[in-house]
Simulated assay, not measured.
Amino acid sequence: MKRILCFAMFMSIGIISLQAQTDVETVTDDMIEKVKTGGFKIGADIGFPLSGTSDISSFNFGFYGTYLFEVVDNLEVGGLIAYTHFSGDGYYYRYHPSDGTTTRVNNDSNSFLPIAATGRYHFMDHSFFAGLDLGFAVNVSGDADTGMLFRPKFGYNLGMINLIASFQVITAEVKRPYHPDYVGGAWDVNGFNSFNVGVEYSF
């Protein structure tokens, strides 16, 4: 009797494991098929620096490429790689303790390479969508650190063309050794923020 019970137990475990493996393979196959049905998009935008960013930059522009596929009705996910540039504006003073003098230094332009996961939800028969990019923004020029990217967006679908408005937040910091308004202290720039508008092409 014990042998029969043990045999039945092992058979049950084997059947359950086989079914679970089959289910995983089915889900994996379905996801692969969904990924294959996705599409590429390229876009470009211009931005207007906000908050403290406007103290060091007067203009922002960028472009990107993304691949999106639908996971459930109206919801797309994928990946994004981009380039965004904040033109330098204004200046600060650098203190030289060796001789007690200061030097006026123009603010650097800063460029970033955002690499992010992205998602979009479509509504009103795909006429409008809301989305979010979330990832890293690697500094490739300028004096800023590498930081996180957070970019909510809202778009209007014209077919092959999308019009997009977004709010870009890059948490990269710029450390300043001296500023005349903060004698003896440091003047820091805590992030790069901008409001952007742009156009996107699907193919």
Rank of each mutant, 00 (worst) to 15 (best):
M1Q: 10
R3A: 12
C6K: 14
C6H: 11
M9S: 10
M9N: 09
M11L: 14
M11K: 07
I15M: 15
I15W: 13
I16L: 14
S17F: 11
A20W: 12
A20T: 12
A20S: 10
T22R: 10
T22K: 12
D23N: 13
V24L: 14
V24M: 14
E25A: 15
E25N: 15
M31C: 07
K36A: 12
T37H: 11
G38N: 02
G39H: 10
G39W: 00
K41R: 12
K41V: 08
G43K: 00
I46W: 05
G47L: 03
P49K: 05
S51Y: 08
G52T: 15
T53L: 03
D55G: 10
F59H: 06
F59A: 09
N60R: 08
Y64A: 05
Y64P: 02
G65V: 04
T66S: 14
F69G: 01
E70G: 01
V71Q: 00
D73A: 07
G79F: 06
L80D: 02
I81C: 10
A82E: 04
T84N: 06
T84S: 13
F86V: 02
F86N: 00
S87A: 12
D89Y: 15
D89E: 11
D89K: 14
Y92N: 05
Y93L: 08
R94D: 08
P97N: 04
S98D: 13
D99S: 02
D99T: 00
G100H: 04
T101P: 03
N106H: 09
S109R: 03
L113Q: 02
L113E: 02
L113S: 02
P114W: 00
I115V: 13
A117G: 15
T118C: 02
G119R: 00
R120E: 00
H122S: 08
D125N: 15
D125W: 03
S127T: 14
A130H: 04
A130G: 14
F136E: 08
A137Y: 00
V138Q: 13
N139E: 12
V140E: 11
V140K: 09
G142K: 00
D143Y: 03
D143F: 05
D145F: 01
F150P: 07
R151H: 09
K153Q: 11
K153E: 10
F154Y: 13
Y156R: 08
N157M: 06
L158T: 09
L158M: 13
L158Q: 07
I161W: 11
I161K: 07
N162D: 13
N162M: 05
L163D: 06
I164L: 06
V169C: 11
E173D: 15
V174M: 10
R176V: 05
P177K: 14
Y178C: 05
Y178H: 14
H179R: 11
H179W: 12
D181F: 11
V183A: 13
G185P: 04
G185S: 11
G185F: 03
W187L: 06
W187E: 07
N190D: 15
F192I: 03
N193W: 08
N193S: 10
N196E: 12
G198W: 00
E200K: 04
E200Y: 04
Y201C: 07
S202K: 14
F203Q: 04
